[in-house]
Amino acid sequence: MEFKRHIVHIDLDSFFVSVERRINPDLIGKPVIIGGSKDRGVVASCSYEARQYGIHSAMPSAKAYKLCPHAIFLHGSHGRYSEASREVTQIIHNSVPLYQKTSIDEFYIDLTGMDRFYDPYQLATDLRQQVITETGLPISFGMASSKTVAKMATNQAKPNGQLRIEHGREKEFMAPLNISKIPMLGEKTCEKLYQYGVEKIGDLQKCNLRFLESVFGRAGKYIWEKAQGIDYSEIVPHSERKSISTEHTFHQDTADQRTLETMLVSMTEELAFKLRSENKLASCLAIKIRFNNFETHTLQEKIALTSAEHILIPGIKNLLKRAWNQHRPIRLIGVKLSQLCSGSYQINLFEDNEEQIKLYKAMDNINFKFGNKTVCRAAGMEIGQRNFNPFQAE
Score class of each variant (00 low, 15 high):
residue 39 D to E: 15
residue 77 S to R: 02
residue 65 Y to T: 13
residue 46 C to G: 10
residue 105 D to S: 05
residue 76 G to S: 10
residue 34 I to Y: 00
residue 42 V to Y: 07
residue 28 I to E: 09
residue 62 A to Y: 15
residue 96 V to H: 05
residue 110 D to V: 01
residue 52 Q to H: 14
residue 35 G to H: 05
residue 110 D to N: 11
residue 81 Y to T: 01
residue 62 A to C: 13
residue 17 V to R: 06
residue 93 H to D: 08
residue 88 V to N: 08
residue 23 I to V: 15
residue 91 I to Y: 04
residue 82 S to K: 14
residue 38 K to L: 07
residue 62 A to F: 15
residue 17 V to F: 13
residue 83 E to V: 02
residue 27 L to K: 02
residue 114 M to C: 13
residue 90 Q to W: 06
residue 73 F to V: 13
residue 30 K to D: 07
residue 93 H to A: 12
residue 89 T to L: 09
residue 80 R to Q: 13
residue 22 R to Q: 14
residue 50 A to F: 05
residue 51 R to K: 12
residue 45 S to V: 08
residue 36 G to T: 05
residue 53 Y to W: 05
residue 41 G to H: 07
residue 64 A to F: 09
residue 113 G to T: 01
residue 66 K to T: 14
residue 17 V to H: 10
residue 85 S to L: 06
residue 98 L to E: 03
residue 25 P to S: 04
residue 29 G to D: 11
residue 89 T to Q: 09
residue 37 S to I: 03
residue 25 P to M: 10
residue 31 P to H: 15
residue 96 V to Q: 04
residue 103 S to T: 03
residue 84 A to T: 01
residue 38 K to D: 10
residue 100 Q to N: 08
residue 90 Q to K: 14
residue 30 K to L: 06
residue 81 Y to I: 03
residue 17 V to T: 13
residue 71 A to L: 06
residue 34 I to W: 00
residue 89 T to A: 06
residue 108 Y to G: 04
residue 16 F to W: 11
residue 88 V to H: 04
residue 35 G to S: 08
residue 37 S to C: 01
residue 31 P to F: 14
residue 105 D to N: 08
residue 109 I to N: 00
residue 29 G to T: 12
residue 114 M to P: 01
residue 83 E to S: 14
residue 60 P to E: 12
residue 54 G to F: 09
residue 84 A to P: 03
residue 96 V to M: 04
residue 98 L to C: 12
residue 33 I to T: 12
residue 107 F to I: 05
residue 40 R to D: 01
residue 110 D to S: 07
residue 74 L to N: 07
residue 92 I to N: 01
residue 71 A to T: 04
residue 93 H to N: 11
residue 51 R to E: 03
residue 27 L to G: 02
residue 63 K to N: 12
residue 84 A to S: 10
residue 31 P to T: 15
residue 115 D to M: 08
residue 43 V to T: 00
residue 98 L to H: 11
residue 77 S to W: 01
residue 113 G to N: 03
residue 17 V to M: 05
residue 109 I to W: 00
residue 35 G to M: 08
residue 54 G to R: 06
residue 67 L to W: 01
residue 72 I to F: 15
residue 58 A to K: 05
residue 100 Q to H: 10
residue 41 G to I: 03
residue 113 G to K: 02
residue 19 V to Y: 14
residue 27 L to C: 00
residue 28 I to N: 09
residue 39 D to G: 11
residue 73 F to W: 07
residue 104 I to L: 09
residue 39 D to N: 15
residue 108 Y to K: 09
residue 110 D to P: 01
residue 111 L to T: 05
residue 86 R to I: 02
residue 18 S to Q: 04
residue 41 G to K: 04
residue 32 V to H: 12
residue 68 C to W: 05
residue 35 G to T: 10
residue 51 R to T: 05
